[in-house]
Every structure is written in structure tokens, then in C-alpha cells.
Computed example of a mutant assay.
Amino acid sequence: MGNYQICDFCGNLSEKTSRKMCKSCEDAYLKIRSIVEVYPDTMVIDISKQTGISASKILAFARNGYFVLKEGTIEGLE
């Protein structure tokens, strides 16, 4: 596959990155992270409403170690 990878979050083929995600998912991750850095106790559903990113994708980031969930809220990890 050379310079390409399968995105861990959406399954699309994209150019290799250090995070193993496509540009679209990386943009979503950075959008979530920007909220979490300022408001670490924000609930997943509120982040989803603010960003338009599905709660399931936010939870996928948490499952893959990019965030830590704490009783309905999310905290930055990386």
C-alpha cells in the first residue's frame, strides 16, 4: 500500500499520517480536542451538537485512546 493507509475511524483509503486517520477524521479529532481543551467536562452529546460530529465517532476516538471518558464527559489524553 506504500504511502496509503486505511483510516481507523471511517475505513476510507487516505495518505499515511502519524495518527492513522484520514484528513476528514483528523479535522474532526482536532475540532473535538479544541472544545475538550477549553471545557474538559463537556458531555459527549454536547460536543456532538456543537460540532456536528456523531457521538459514535467521538466514542470511537475514545475507544482508540485519543480521549478518556469520565461518566458522560470526555477528557483530552494526547
Results as ranks from 00 to 15, higher is better:
Ser14Met: 08
Thr73Lys: 13
Asp46Ser: 15
Ser34Arg: 14
Lys31His: 10
Ser18Arg: 10
Asp41Leu: 08
Gly11His: 06
Tyr66Gln: 09
Leu69Val: 07
Ser34Tyr: 04
Thr17Ser: 15
Phe67Met: 07
Ile74Ala: 07
Glu37Asp: 13
Arg33Gln: 08
Ile53Pro: 06
Ala28Lys: 08
Gln50Ile: 12
Val36Gly: 05
Ala55Phe: 00
Met43Val: 07
Ala28Trp: 00
Ile58Leu: 14
Lys57Val: 02
Glu78Thr: 04
Ser18Phe: 03
Gly72Glu: 05
Ile58Trp: 01
Glu26Ala: 06
Tyr4His: 13
Cys7Ile: 03
Asp46Lys: 13
Asp27His: 08
Tyr4Cys: 10
Ile53Tyr: 06
Leu30Trp: 12
Phe61Ala: 07
Gly72Ile: 00
Asp8Lys: 14
Tyr29Lys: 12
Ser14Asp: 15
Thr17Arg: 15
Asn3Arg: 12
Gly76Phe: 03
Pro40Glu: 05
Thr42Val: 14
Glu78Met: 03
Gly52Leu: 03
Pro40Lys: 04
Gly11Leu: 04
Ser14Ala: 15
Gly65Cys: 03
Phe67Val: 05
Met1Asp: 12
Asn12Thr: 13
Asp46Met: 12
Ser56Phe: 10
Val36Arg: 02
Ser14Cys: 15
Glu37Lys: 15
Cys22Asn: 06
Cys25Pro: 00
Leu77Ser: 12
Lys31Leu: 10
Thr51Asn: 11
Gln5Trp: 00
Leu30Val: 06
Thr51Asp: 08
Ser54Val: 02
Gly2Val: 09
Ile53Gly: 07
Arg63Asp: 12
Gly11Glu: 09
Ile35Glu: 10
Gln5Asp: 09
Met1Gln: 13
Glu15Gly: 14
Thr42Pro: 06
Glu15Asp: 10
Gly65Met: 00
Lys57Pro: 01
Tyr29Ser: 13
Ile35Thr: 08
Lys49Asp: 08
Thr42Lys: 13
Tyr39Thr: 15
Ile32Tyr: 02
Ile47Gln: 10
Ser54Leu: 02
Val44Thr: 14
Cys10Gly: 05
Pro40Arg: 05
Cys10Trp: 00
Glu78Lys: 06
Lys70Tyr: 06
Glu75Leu: 14
Glu78Phe: 02
Phe67Ile: 04
Ile58Lys: 09
Ile6Asp: 05
Tyr66Thr: 02
Val44Met: 10
Phe67Gly: 07
Ile58His: 08
Asn3Asp: 14
Val44Ser: 12
Met21Trp: 01
Tyr39Arg: 15
Pro40Ala: 07
Asn3Trp: 04
Ile35Gln: 10
Cys7Glu: 11
Pro40Ile: 00
Gln5Ala: 09
Val68Gly: 01
Met21Val: 00
Lys31Phe: 01
Ser56Pro: 02
Met1Lys: 13
Leu13Gly: 09
Ser56His: 12
Ser18Met: 08
Leu13Glu: 14
Lys23Thr: 10
Gln5Pro: 01
Tyr4Ser: 13
Leu13Lys: 14
